[in-house]
Write a protein that binds this DNA or RNA. Structure first.
Length: 216
DNA sequence: TGCCAGGCCCTCTTTAGGGCCTT
């Protein structure tokens, strides 16, 4: 099964369009349910971190000032991912920062397909909304408690959150297998399922695998 | 922690508004 990269950013705020920048990135590389690689680094993007975000993440201005430049870290992160499809919790957030930070790198160098091709993101929050209507809350921490996922360390640090999101993804894949007999849940199937209504999932799964067979 | 953003989803909806989730 091809690898999937589960990613999490810590940032100075909610929107790259508002000038917010990444302060930390972590990536957990999964093959099936097996972790085959981890990447984590603080990064210095030259932005001050507001006190309430320092408290929220535990990442201080001093820590970021001592970190390598954001461009170097993102270059290393892109090489680590090697074009693998990406997964995140509330992926629209991490997708914005992934693309924004990489654009800053590729804008200074010869364009590289790894950086210029927007990867497709699967979202563990959207999938959880469809699969676990009884969960109540779809915050990462709440879903970790709901499923009794292994503790990964301090919440709101990138590697801990990426580890929890990876565990959640494995749980989602396991439940898809149990409920819908999906032996493996490829990334593009996850992307399709996160867009369809719960009652339409069996039909979407069947259509997906019929499509694969027709193209074989 | 939330006023700032943006996407998704629900409903007292669809010619809209508000809550959730991410930092």
């Amino acid at each position: 099964m091809p690898p999937i990269a589960v990613i999490d950013f810590e940032t100075t705020g909610l929107s790259p369009a508002a000038g917010h920048r990444a302060t930390e990135i972590a990536i957990v590389l999964l093959e099936g349910s097996r972790v085959v690689g981890r990447f984590q680094s603080l990064m210095n993007a030259g932005r001050r971190i507001a006190p309430f975000i320092e408290e929220y993440t535990g990442i201080t201005n001093e820590m970021v000032q001592a970190a390598p430049p954001a461009a170097d870290v993102m270059t290393e992160a892109a090489r680590f991912v090697q074009g693998a499809p990406l997964v995140a919790h509330n992926a629209s957030f991490d997708q914005q920062f992934w693309q924004s930070e990489l654009r800053r790198v590729s804008g200074r160098k010869r364009p590289d397909p790894v950086w210029t091709s927007p990867p497709s993101f699967a979202c563990t929050m959207l999938l959880s909304r469809r699969l676990y209507p009884q969960a109540g809350s779809y915050r990462l921490g709440a879903l970790a408690s709901f499923h009794a996922l292994p503790d990964a360390g301090r919440a709101h640090r990138a590697l801990a959150d990426a580890e929890v999101a990876a565990s959640l993804l494995c749980r989602i894949r396991g439940d898809l297998q149990e409920r819908y007999q999906v032996d493996e849940a490829p990334h593009d199937l996850l992307v399709q399922l996160q867009r369809c209504q719960r009652r339409s999932m069996p039909k979407a799964i069947a259509a997906y695998f019929e499509g694969l067979r027709d193209h074989a």
